[in-house]
Design a protein around this nucleic acid. Structure first.
Length: 802
RNA sequence: GCCGAAGUGGCGGAAUUGGUAGACGCGCUGGAUUCAAAAUCCAGUGAGAGCAAUCUCGUGUGGGUUCAAGUCCCACCUUCGGUACCA
């Protein structure tokens, strides 16, 4: 009899599927637990090790919860629309419909072989027509509520994918997917008004259990800042330049203004600007630069011939164009206060502009003084002597009263560009009629099916390939019945993944997005695990969409407006050498290779054992063997299982292990849980016999990790039912405690001896005497003054002598 | 630059949150088994000194608090993530 994981594992995978062991029951009386992992893109490369790490971790959590009596939903699907799938199709020159289907089959096979306790009956793919029907439906609801709108936008354009990108998809100035150069280009785009939900997206974080770093990153990304909008008149014109500032208290110190190259004021006052030719040159150059290049050095040019008027002191101040001011934030114009803003300071130094301090303190000769906590207002007329905090509301009030400004809030977060000029996505269900404008497709005509076409490759002119399908584009206006054209842009890959977890609770419903009762039962998701890289993308977007669906009543009130109660994230899995896995570096590890060699139980346990779950870890071939040896040992233990005798030591260790493994799973400390299981195994191995009871408990503890092996050995013990449906063991504190405990004895902070004492024994004079007379210690204490004698129960004995 | 996390044997990593540092695993050394090897099993394995009992040093660096510091405080160094002029 030999441990042969490959046969054994296939057998149990089939058993689980045939017996529908992991099917979740809707509206069951049991308490529910909804565990979720990010469904994969079925790209051509197959599952990678990162998927396995996440899926295994939550599988362990779900399996344990199931054994603890919860009605567990652990679903799986495919995020099949979008660029990865399409790029693969382009590369292999096969229509994405076909490659996607093939890839899904490959992924499903890999997922099955992982032994995850997924409820396969709820499987869905975002490319299913009866799924994306509802993705389109959500878009229409947003349009109806004014949250979806079309606008000309200066967008991020990837010069290699020929596609518009959301801000979140531009990483270090290049395209997140292909590292292609990203430039600004003006395009008509559909946008979703996520900014309307900015405050709620921040506030909601307080009531959910997300990793702190995730909360912080989302908050920073939304970037709420409070301040004021202030109007500056342009001298001898009727124009007004409006700025946003978080420091209205420094208004008296504003000695110049700066506008972004794209600011409309430049064109408007073209005729008044004496050096317009040079200005225009500067602007043209700035537009060529990517955001990163813009950041390098501060440059600018004065708009000669026009001046602005500082509303608080009526001083005339110069106006500059400079690319350090961004059109995409605030109003695209700033009031510069060089004395109290480091960027303005540098700019003022370079162009020899006035620097007027308005808050006392700091050394203006060296750098800007930005502290807001100390220092009194100066050079600000009647307000001199106030603190910054006192002055701020006063000046805003004054501005408001004189109609020169108003309190305002700004966000870094922008509305979400939702159009993609590609083929492989959900068609945006909108129709344009020259008379009636943009109208949504009638809901009864959903889904707008993506037509099969031959030439699905992206076009260089920036139009979606769908634009060429004339008979599909041509349609009728639902209002005037005249000729109309369909929108040819498709949705981004995020569209389908925004709400998939809702659909899992009712995947086959063809009447509504989700049945209220089912939603009420299952939602919100109890525990969502995934990658940190989705913090500002999927995770933020889907919170927004969920809140919207809540607002329009699709999600029942009882669920609340936050989709995920708890969010955790696994650390990255690095390739050999501790660097990111990448094909170009040739260090990609395919989990299939390990599965073939050692079986998937070994891979599951190995990925958990390798290191702390939330930290990045590097795979190495050598570590796997240790886990394989461990499982082989476990397999061989079956020959020792006899009778029901169980000694005290074994009982103690068993209960300690129950406690340790249970706690560790809840806290995602899988590495130490595995270690505890190894220790118990090594203990069993040293015994002549292992009792059936002990071994049964051990198998239950092992079963979330090495699911197949546990099932096999459980069965061999003569059990008929799946171990996955057994009851999770509970430890008894009394039994887990040692009767005797060894304490170290320190003299002057150095360990000199140790003593075995009964557990929980209190400090006493008798014990002190006994310890002080120990022969080993005499060398250190004899003839010396005992200054202190410290005995901390069950911890340490510490003696101080002089 | 700013924000966050982390630095512990040859390696991956433990350490009840201030209480015997190095659990567990890999690797390595020696032994058993074998014609031989693989696999397996047993013993050892932080560094230095010693035949030994034992002693000294030791958790990135330098200081501090404490009977006691990997853990707390101050300063610094390094690495990895996030972010990029956000007014």
């Amino acid at each position: 009899m030999e441990y042969n994981p490959n046969n054994l594992e296939k057998k149990w995978q089939k058993y689980w599927q045939d017996k529908k062991i992991f099917q979740a029951k809707d509206n069951d009386k049991k308490k529910k637990f909804y565990g979720l992992i990010e469904f994969p893109y079925p790209s051509g490369d197959g599952l990678h090790t990162g998927h396995l790490r996440s899926y295994t971790a939550l599988d362990i959590v779900c399996r344990k919860r199931r054994m603890q009596g919860f009605n567990v939903l652990y679903p799986i699907g495919m995020d099949a629309f979008g660029l990865p799938a399409e790029n693969y199709a382009v590369k292999t020159n096969t229509p994405p419909q076909i490659t996607t289907q093939k890839n899904i089959a490959i992924f499903n096979k890999q997922l099955t072989s992982g032994g995850y306790s997924f409820d396969w009956s709820r499987f869905l793919a975002t490319t299913d027509q009866d799924y994306y029907k509802w993705t389109q439906w959500i878009f229409i609801q947003m349009f109806k509520k004014g949250l979806a709108y079309k606008a000309k936008e200066n967008i991020n354009w990837c010069t290699s994918c020929h596609i518009g990108l959301a801000n979140e998809e531009v990483v270090n100035g290049v395209c997140e997917r292909c590292d292609g150069k990203v430039v600004k280009q003006e395009k008509e785009q559909w946008l979703l008004k996520i900014t309307d939900y900015a405050d709620r997206l921040i506030e909601g974080l307080d009531k959910i259990d997300f990793l702190e770093t995730i909360k912080k990153q989302q908050k920073d990304w939304i970037g709420r800042s409070e301040g004021a909008e202030v109007d500056f008149k342009i001298k001898d014109t009727n124009e007004i330049l409006r700025v946003f500032t978080t420091r209205p208290d420094t208004l008296f110190g504003s000695t110049f203004m700066v506008v972004a190259p794209e600011q409309e004021i430049v064109l408007k006052l073209k005729d008044k600007i004496k050096n317009y030719t040079q200005v225009n040159k500067y602007i043209a150059k700035a537009k060529q630069k990517t955001d990163i290049q813009r950041g390098k050095t501060k440059t600018g040019i004065e708009l000669k011939g026009i001046k602005a008027i500082n509303p608080v002191n009526n001083q005339e101040i110069p106006i500059f164009v400079a690319d350090y001011v961004l059109m995409t934030y605030g109003t695209g114009a700033i009031m510069a206060v060089p004395a109290h803003d480091q960027r303005d300071y540098e700019f003022a130094k370079k162009y020899k502009l006035d620097i007027v301090p308005v808050i006392a303190g700091g050394d203006i000769k060296k750098k800007a003084y930005t502290d807001t906590n100390s220092g009194k207002i100066i050079n600000s007329g009647e307000y001199n002597g106030l603190t910054v905090k006192e002055f701020q509301p006063k000046i805003v009030q004054w501005l408001d009263k004189n109609k020169l400004g108003i309190k305002a809030i700004n966000y870094k977060l922008h509305d979400w560009i939702f159009s993609r000029q590609r083929y492989w996505g959900e068609p945006i269900p909108m129709v344009h009629c020259d008379k009636c404008g943009w109208l949504p497709v009638d809901e009864k005509d959903l889904p707008v099916v993506l037509p099969d076409i031959k030439d699905f490759k992206p076009t260089k002119d920036g139009q979606s390939p769908l634009a060429k399908v004339t008979d599909w584009v041509k349609t009728k206006c639902s209002q005037c019945k005249g000729e109309a054209r369909r929108e040819t842009d498709v949705m981004p890959n995020w569209a389908g993944s925004n709400w998939y977890f809702i659909r899992y609770t009712d995947p086959k419903n063809n009447k509504e997005l989700v049945d209220k009762q089912k939603a009420k039962y299952w939602l919100p998701v109890d525990w969502y695990n995934g990658g940190m890289e989705h913090t500002n993308l999927h995770l933020l977007y889907s919170r927004f969409v969920f809140k919207f669906l809540y607002d329009i009543g699709v999600i029942p009130k009882e669920c609340g407006d936050e989709p995920y109660k708890k969010r955790t994230a696994q650390g990255m899995i690095l390739g050999k050498g501790g660097i990111k896995m990448s094909k170009s570096k040739g260090n990609v590890v395919n989990p299939d290779d390990y599965v073939k060699k050692y079986g998937s139980d070994t891979v599951r346990v190995y990925e958990m054992f390798i290191g702390p779950f939330d930290q990045a870890v590097a795979l190495n071939d050598k570590g796997v063997i240790g886990v394989y040896r461990f499982l082989t040992k476990v397999f061989n233990l079956q020959t020792k299982v006899k009778g029901n005798k169980q000694d005290k030591d074994t009982e103690k260790l068993l209960h300690q292990t129950i406690k340790k493994v249970s706690d560790d799973i809840d806290n995602m400390r899988f590495n130490t849980a595995v270690s505890a299981l190894m220790i118990l195994t090594n203990h069993f191995e040293k015994q002549k016999e292992v009792s059936k009871d002990s071994f049964s408990i051990f198998l239950k503890l092992l079963s979330p990790f090495a699911a197949h092996l546990a099932e096999e050995l459980w069965n061999k013990l003569g059990n008929k039912n799946s171990i996955a449906l057994e009851t999770w063991p509970k430890h008894k504190d009394k039994l887990a405690q040692a009767e005797m405990i060894t304490l170290g004895i320190q003299v002057n902070g150095k360990l000199r001896d140790s003593i075995a004492l009964a557990f929980n024994i209190e400090a006493s004079d008798k014990l002190k005497k006994e310890i002080l007379s120990r022969s080993k210690l005499q060398k250190y204490i004899q003839g010396k003054d005992i200054k202190k004698f410290i005995h901390i129960k069950n911890r340490i004995i510490s003696i101080v002598v002089k």
